[in-house]
Nucleic acid binder design. Structure first.
Length: 217
DNA sequence: ATGATTTGACCCTA
DNA sequence: TAGGGTCAAATCAT
């Protein structure tokens, strides 16, 4: 499904990455206005910029899929939002979406593992990751990864929040060889689609390439 | 020595 | 109160 020469693809990815970066910045600005004293940004505007941001991300994913000879599963559905839940002081309610893949997703971002936990009625541990730049740049992106099935091997990944870190450009431009292995997009629990297995590997981040598998078997 | 991971404890929500 | 998410000291890898 790849009809474009490599250099066209690279330019395309570069532009999409730029767009995503700008959208992320806009999201930050809007969020600051929303929480600031002037606060005249509507939730609709914030929601809109979130959708733009996601579109860029998904476009990049699609390019990555086609590059590796795979077909994107679906277009994204609206995110599942905990709209009626009270905002916790400690846990802020961020947009989240999930994917189910045959391999742990290598999304090109730098993640730091900060915990893992046994989940009720689950055979495997759930691993918790946050952006490596959380403290440097205040990037609030997190993800959770859990092996869900053995046959066929599948991994469930839940992303929460978008990356606002500057590493975004470098990371995404490096996606050609470490493209997202994502298969299924689902922004609520009802819609899930699977993809063929590709390979198995742990997926150390760009900052954390090394050592033992991050996912307990 | 430095930075990442592990793991038990603690915190929060339903 | 149980289950899930996060923290942080201890441990490990480079």
């Amino acid at each position: 499904m790849d009809y474009s020469p490599p250099f066209v693809r690279e330019n395309l990815i570069e532009e999409l990455v730029k767009g995503r970066g700008f959208a992320a910045q806009l999201q930050l600005v809007l969020h600051q206005q929303l929480t600031g004293s002037s606060g005249h940004v509507s939730a609709t505007e914030e929601d809109l910029v979130t959708k733009i941001l996601r579109s860029f991300t998904e476009a990049l994913s699609i390019l990555s899929y086609s590059e590796s000879g795979k077909v994107p599963a679906t277009s994204p559905a609206p995110p599942c939002r905990d709209q009626n839940r009270k905002r916790s002081k400690r846990r802020n309610v961020q947009e989240s979406w999930t994917r189910i893949t045959a391999v742990p997703i290598e999304d090109g971002y730098a993640w730091r593992k900060y915990g893992q936990k046994e989940i009720l009625n689950a055979k495997h541990l759930r691993c918790y990751f946050r952006c490596s730049y959380r403290f440097d740049q205040g990037c609030q992106a997190t993800k959770q990864v859990q092996r869900t099935e053995d046959e066929p091997l599948t991994f469930w990944t839940k992303y929460t929040g978008h990356h606002t870190c500057q590493d975004i450009l470098k990371a995404s431009l490096g996606m050609d060889s470490t493209a997202e292995e994502g298969v299924l997009l689902s922004f609520n629990s009802n819609t899930t689609i699977k993809q063929e297995p590709h390979f198995f590997s742990s997926f150390p981040s760009s900052k954390e390439e090394h050592k033992k598998p991050l996912f307990p078997q």
